[in-house]
Amino acid sequence: MTSIGTGYDLSASTYSPDGRIFQVEYANKAVENSGTAIGLRCKDGVVIAVEKLVHSKLLVPGANRRIQTVDRHIGLATAGLMADGRHIANRARDEAASFRDIYRSPPPLKTIVDRVGLFVQAFTLYSSVRPFGISTILGAVDKDGPALYVVEPSGVFYGYHGAAVGKGRQLAKTELEKLKLAELSTREAVTEAARIIYAVHEDSKEKEFELEMSWIGNESKGVFVPVPEDLLAEAERKAKEALENFE
């Protein structure tokens, strides 16, 4: 890494001579070390799936969820530092609640993402703070239909049809590109998402993982909730099958 030793990477409030902020780039490294998270924006809803690496067998199954709920119709998944993820979810909830308070209607995802983006960006301005070590996938079905965004540690956010962050993002993106997301139903997307998470998981060197999946769409009655257990189990079974056939 060329930045080390130059002194330009010690603070988020210092540019390098070629105009980069190294602390933000290091934050991206924290994201790259995390288990993969993907989001699929399909025909009638959004599915978010996470490869949650389980670092100890002593942990209660299902503990430390990485997919969190922001509002009835908004959810998010984070890749990177877990604690930062919790903080950003709390902030997003506050923003959603404040929108409801002022406008007396459910917030559109774009507004929430905009505010979360501004919040994250503020942490790239000062030497006294560190940028967020997370990328956040936010999904919702709002008045304009299904929506999916990713907020990066720099504070930028983009809208996506399919998004992937974390360790296995490259392979996951390749797999997502093969799908016709605009024609996919949420139920089909659940199977595909499970398959992709299983495919990107590096079995050889990685620890155990749990597949975590939430969705919103007509089938979930328009609220952001975890995918029902039977459907999740079925998707996992198919994913394992696909993996064996592939190998």
Binding site: Q68, T69, D71, R72, A96, A97, R100, D101, V223
Partner: peptide
């Protein structure tokens, strides 16, 4: 009450 219910829902 609606705000409270949303808050409770998001805690999951």
């Amino acid at each position: 009450l609606d705000d409270k219910m949303v808050e409770e829902f998001t805690s999951q």
